[in-house]
Structures are given as structure tokens and as C-alpha cells.
Amino acid sequence: MNKIYKKLAIVGEVGAGKTQLINTISEISPFATEARSSVDIGKEFTTVGIDYGRLSLDEDTALGLYGLPGQRRFSLLWETVRQGLWGLLILVKYGDGLNLEDLEHILRFYQPHSNGLPVVVGISHTEDATGDELEVLVDYIEFTLAAHNLVAPILPVDPRDVESSIMLLELFHSLDSAGDIFQQPEFVEVGVADAS
């Protein structure tokens, strides 16, 4: 039987854990396109192509995981995974101060609201964050998303941990299912009744 392939783009700032997350959950050996960094970006390697992994959602459906480079000069690659996306996973790194400009750039490019694209935001490197600090960061992210007419789940994630990473994907599944539910006739009727 032919599998249905869905496409998830994983974007975010440098060092947020995009490559790591794919390495953690991919059921195939990930196709990695890293190069040794020639400047100090806080880590030895950086993605300069598109990382690819795959995860089966069920017997008939597989999810292609497309990890995109975080550095802005590689944004020419974002176009290659723009069409037919099932979801957009944005990874934000706690600790260096929220890079609002990068987040804005991502949202302007993918236009999730106009394209009906589900978004989940994962915050990585939160081991040393206090509850208050995380709350402030979440507020900033919510504010930025709201400016783009978006409401999205925002939660901490450890890209090295399978369960933590899978949890983000389960959120997409829930958002997808919720979208299907609200298309059911009984919900459409309720919406019309409320409007009147």
C-alpha cells in the first residue's frame, strides 16, 4: 500500500535544536547537511542545507521532517519546503534573549495564518530557566504570534529526548484532528446559530 507523506518544516534560530530533534525522532538515518562553523556560533557544526528525517504517524501515513538552516543567509532554502506543508514547528532557544527579528522573518515568510498552517513553538535549552523567566519568554512569543493573527501552543522541549520531541508532534496531530472536527456539519451549524 502506498504511504501518504506529510511535510513538517522545522525552523528556528541557530542552535535551537532543529538538527538534534530530527536525529532524535527520525526512524531512518537522517540526511544531514552540516558544515563545520568557521565563526563562533556557540557550536561546532551548522546546517547549510536541509536536514531530512522521517517518522511514521501510523501504518498509512509518514511524516517528512525538514530541518532548515537557522542562519538568515540560507533563507533561500526555505522556499523549497514552503508548499504543501502539514505544519510548521518553530524552535526557540532560551537563554540568548529571544531573537524577535528571526521569529518575525519566519512568520512573514510562511504566513501561517493566511495559509491555514498549524504552528507549534518549542522552547529548548530551558534546563536553567525559572518559571517566571519562561513565562516572560512565552508572553513575548505569544505577543509576536498574535501580531500575525496566530494562537499556537508554546512549550518547553528537549530535542535530545524522544518523548519530549514526540510530544510536539502529537500537538500537531491534535490541531489537525481539531481542524477536521470543526469541519463536521454539526459544528458548522452551531457556528451559524451563534452568529445569529
Binding site: 540526511f31 542545507g49 532554502l77
Partner: peptide, 20 residues
């Protein structure tokens, strides 16, 4: 800048494909 980024991408992808 774009040319350098594109060149490094093609270099990296070519290497990954060749190794696979």
C-alpha cells in the same frame, strides 16, 4: 552572500548524497 550560501549548500548536499 547568497552565492556563498548557495555554494555551501550545494557542497554539503552533494557530499551527503555522494556518501549515501
Amino acid at each position: 552572500d547568497t552565492l556563498a550560501a548557495a555554494s555551501s549548500t550545494l557542497h554539503s548536499v552533494s557530499n551527503a548524497v555522494s556518501k549515501q
